[in-house]
């Protein structure tokens, strides 16, 4: 690494932020059209994603070049690291929202619908035939479904993610010990396990729809099940893409035991996603 500059690095004007905004806008605009069954929606979404991927390459390319050119001093590095902490904080609250919704629906509103708590009158007057134990739909839905079994795919998926946590840790130690082979092998294994997880998850969804009649329309159980696992699956996918980028940079030998914020950030993110899955496994599948 070249000598550390004393001044805080200030980037020149950059086109990427506004391109990022344009691509996200395109995706969301397309989504708004698509959910209403309007045809051009899909085009906007595809265009948006294409632009977004192009932009990721360009923007992160700039960042990597600046980093390799030694333009970042300790303080800039700190800014990235602290920025990540606060980003993760917002992510945590995102997940807490959905977990909170699950808690509320399973306890508070469930009590009222079945005749307990402050709005117990709801049960007496409106649904005196409705009794329920989780997992359930609601008093107005008649279709039956089978809940997802914890000890099938979900348990296996837990093992997959746990193992991937171990492999990313190997890679991490490999990096620290300047063992590039271990770093690359660990990363490849992690990406493979991540993809395996997503594939199994997709297969599980298909099972749920076809065999168990467990759909988005299966009342609150279906709703919370899909939103929590889906939101998590999205994070795994994003994590795997980021891991792939890190793998590419590892091949190029970008990381040294001193300079590897990108690696550590992505690795930590992967652990975070893994821990969220443990929470999911307990609260969605088991309890």
């Amino acid at each position: 690494m070249s000598q550390t500059p004393s001044n805080y690095f200030l980037p020149d004007p950059s086109p990427w932020p506004i391109v990022a905004v344009a691509s996200v806008f395109s995706i969301l605009f397309g989504a708004a059209l698509a959910v209403n069954g309007l045809f051009p929606g899909g085009i906007f979404i595809v265009l948006g994603f294409a632009l977004f991927s192009y932009l990721l390459f360009s923007w992160f390319g700039d960042v990597v070049r600046e980093n390799m050119a030694g333009l970042y001093n300790e303080r800039v590095d700190s800014s990235f690291r602290q920025g990540m902490i606060w980003f993760i904080t917002s992510e945590v609250f995102f997940f807490l929202t959905f977990f909170g919704a699950l808690w509320y629906l399973r306890n508070v509103s469930a009590d009222w619908l079945t005749g307990k708590g402050y709005l117990a009158g709801t049960h007496e007057v409106l649904y005196n035939q409705f009794f329920s134990v989780w997992p359930r739909t609601g008093p107005g839905l008649k279709e039956e479904f089978t809940p997802m079994k914890a000890w099938g795919v979900p348990a296996f998926n837990t093992i997959v993610l746990l193992t991937s946590g171990a492999t990313i840790t190997w890679a991490h130690w490999g990096l620290k010990a300047e063992n590039r082979k271990l770093l690359i092998r660990g990363l490849i294994a992690t990406i493979f396990l991540g993809l395996l997880f997503v594939t199994l998850q997709a297969w599980e969804y298909q099972e749920a729809y076809q065999q168990l009649n467990l759909t988005l329309k299966s009342g609150v159980y279906g709703s919370t099940f899909y939103i929590l696992t889906g939101f998590h699956g999205m994070h795994v996918t994003v994590g795997a893409i980021m891991l792939a980028a890190i793998l590419g940079r590892s091949f190029k030998g970008h990381f040294t035991p001193e300079n590897h914020f990108a690696f550590e950030a992505v690795a930590w993110y992967w652990h975070f996603v893994d821990v969220v899955w443990l929470g999911l496994f307990i609260f969605v599948y088991m309890l």
């Binding site: 959910v35 909170g100 509103s109 609150v220 709703s223």
Partner: peptide, 30 residues
């Protein structure tokens, strides 16, 4: 505070278009 708001409107979007029941008593929501 913003993630819960974004999460809430996301659930609303699902209730509107994908048949979920977060805010619909018939499906056990509230």
């Amino acid at each position: 505070i913003l993630p819960p708001f974004a999460g809430a409107v996301t659930m609303l979007l699902f209730d509107r278009h994908f048949g979920t029941s977060f805010f619909n008593a018939a499906g056990g929501g509230d």
